[in-house]
Write a protein that binds this DNA or RNA. Structure first.
Lengths: 234, 234
DNA sequence: AATGACTATTTATATAGACATAAATGCCAT
DNA sequence: ATGGCATTTATGTCTATATAAATAGTCATT
């Protein structure tokens, strides 16, 4: 058990505070001493205590409010962080070989559901791509992507036969906003064939919409091969 | 476009740096000026610049190394934060009514897969619960839970008929480690009946294992009603 | 060519003090 | 009681400065 002593770093203080929360010395919903008091107890300064408490609050252990003080949250660690890896990285990092293939490329007027979803004018031409990502030649992810060329006209001339749209976009268009959803979908015939499974199988699916300064840029539907799971530790 | 001026807060500095990254003034892989130089440019102090850059690094935009300097990451390996709310909160926060029901409670020897998964001795007695969570009386989540009583003997006497196991555990046993996975599963007959759908439907599923100081505490499988999606913005 | 010691630079963190800002609280007039 | 105002207090942030730790780069040594 970490005990207060002189010259504690903000890391030490974080650990002491966490211990006290775990041992119910500071019970859920209870109020911690003020930063000033804690600084004195730890023979530290308010700045250092502040950083420790601020980070614990960011991590979801504490709630802080001016004047009201710092409170222990009863539902601890409510935030999970997931990295959003590029498919290629996700695959190569396990030592497997990554392969990409373009399935289809079209320019066509935005369908109604897309116009509504991304808030773009009806009938505006958009780029529609379908691609596959393989790991050691086994299907890994089937990608259906829509790109609005308005904010990036050069996308229409890009060659997506060897570079995936995500790789290309990441280089060309840094996004400013992102909406990311995860859901379970049922494989239709097309998805099933590309992912080498049966129609009707449950498919872990991600939907990703990005904007650049308020302008919609791209929507991607990512269908993962059966058995995929997204995991995090904390 | 934010332009450097006097008295910039660390937030302002973050924004300016982000803008410059987006406008390729500081291209991917390139090196930023040192904190000292930036502090001078922004008529600020190194402390303030440090906080701005440190946070941008935490958010995945920059990479910082002593002596090596601060570098722009080319693949904004950005991190998505998902709240892991208590089911009850997730429901009541939308203004809907939450209802909980215990379906079944057993004490039985740990099945082999559970022993292996949670690293507990073969045949150790564990508490097995099945529960339902409803929103406005529509099925929301079907929960299958295993609790290892070793580290919390009193769990065997707990009354789970009106309090959900998660609520109970959160109050009693602060966890120290958590593994959280998301995947898509196919509804079996039981799941389908509880979630009011057809067997075979794709089900968004979460698996959650928690430990207390290295001791496994509980494993939960959470089956969400069809249509559920987990969303985050950033 | 490889290894090791040294140095300069950059980030990491701590201290001390000041002012800003939000919000809980109590007091007062109604 | 009730609404509004002033006070108080805890956190939020900035400035200024100092020291520590890591490490890229250099140069000498093997």
């Amino acid at each position: 058990m970490a005990a207060p002593r002189a010259n504690m770093s903000y890391r030490d203080i974080k650990q002491v505070v966490l211990d006290r929360i775990h041992n119910k010395i500071w019970a859920p919903d209870s109020l911690l001493p003020s930063e000033t008091d804690l600084a004195e107890e730890f023979s530290s300064t308010r700045t250092t205590v502040n950083r420790a408490l601020r980070e614990l609050a960011e991590e979801g252990y504490l709630e802080r409010k001016r004047k009201a003080g710092t409170r222990v949250l009863n539902a601890p660690a409510r935030k999970a962080q997931f990295a959003i890896p590029l498919v290629r990285d996700e695959i190569t990092e396990t030592g497997s070989e990554y392969r990409y293939a373009l399935v289809e490329r079209n320019v066509l007027p935005a369908p109604h559901w897309l116009s509504a979803r991304m808030n773009i004018p009806q009938g505006r031409d958009v780029l529609h791509l379908r691609c596959m990502h393989y790991t050691d030649n086994a299907p890994f992810q089937y990608e259906v992507r829509w790109i609005v060329p308005d904010s990036i006209p050069e996308v229409l001339d890009a060659d997506f036969s060897s570079v995936g749209p995500n790789d290309w976009l990441v280089q060309k268009v840094p996004f400013t906003n992102l909406e990311l959803s995860f859901l379970a979908t049922k494989a239709d015939q097309t998805v099933a064939e590309f992912l080498d499974t049966q129609a009707g199988e449950p498919i872990f699916t991600a939907e990703r919409i990005t904007w650049l300064r308020g302008q919609p840029v791209t929507l991607a539907k990512l269908f993962f091969a059966p058995g995929y799971r997204m995991t995090t530790h904390l």
